[in-house]
Write a protein that binds this DNA or RNA. Structure first.
Lengths: 146, 146
DNA sequence: GACTCATGATTAGGCACCCTAACATTCGTC
DNA sequence: GACGAATGTTAGGGTGCCTAATCATGAGTC
């Protein structure tokens, strides 16, 4: 809030942020490989790994509409990775829960992905890694704002 | 290279990097609004804004396959934003060139997007902005590595 | 010059993911 | 018990990406 939104420095940062974000999107895409769980599905599984969530909550967390979330969840259900049960406190709602198989695959896939990313990060020097680590919370903050 | 790719610190950083990246994807998506040029198209226009490029170069820069690039480029051509001409030095190749209209719209859309992002960045304090600015080159480096 | 192989782009067909609109069901309230 | 709000699902459509197949040109070989 310390600068007006039209400050040239802000616009310059915006420009390079946009460009970097675009590259990051391709980086992210390149990371879900080889016929395993997609990045999208990983996100959903991560979400319900902590506790069962309603479809609407999943959609909101993913930043997509409810019907789109339903679609994804049904696929995960058909793959046996999650189950759907009516919420005991409100029979309109549906609770999405991770199955044992889902948890196992989620952990495996997460591990493989982390290793893949770690291999990339290993090419950075300590200073760059520190810069990256420091900025991640900031980007998270931005995403939540939007 | 200063750490083995299985170092726990590296894996932890990989984990939070992946999560942040996912959020950033949604952030990026939320930024192309309101029936204007998509983020994808912006990228293509930016690329050919400097100099005409071959379809294969556009595809490579975007991290997508040639047929997918062709598809996008044809849409841009139909919108009158780029033109396609055979490469004089190799008639198999096609050069994608920005039209005057394309350049005008690209600049306009870029400006609007920068303003939108700048408005987000304005919510950060100076320290956060500095952290972000410092990390962008690092992320760019990672994307190029992958 | 004709054959062959490699390269650049396009076309065809298909899949993943997202959307809006319309519908059923349940909840809360009056 | 009836009405409006909330929760999901279904139906239908669009975009963007992919692989495989095809077409056209370039480059090397005989």
């Amino acid at each position: 809030m310390s600068l007006p939104p039209t400050d040239p420095r802000l616009l310059a940062l915006a420009q390079s942020f946009r460009t970097t974000l675009r590259h990051a999107v391709y980086l992210s895409r390149s990371m879900d490989g080889d016929g395993e769980i997609t990045s999208m599905q990983m996100s959903t599984l991560s979400m319900v790994a902590e506790e069962p969530l309603r479809v609407s909550r999943v959609a909101a967390n993913l930043g997509i509409r409810v019907p789109s979330a339903t679609e994804q969840i049904i696929k995960l259900e058909q793959a046996g990775l999650v189950s759907r049960q009516p919420d005991p406190t409100d029979s309109r709602a549906v609770l999405v829960k991770l199955t044992d198989k889902g948890r196992a695959e989620w952990e495996d896939a997460g591990r493989r992905r982390n290793e893949r990313v770690a291999a990339l990060l290993a090419h950075l020097d300590d200073n760059d890694r520190a810069l990256l680590a420091a900025a991640l919370p900031v980007i998270g903050k931005l995403s939540r704002t939007a």
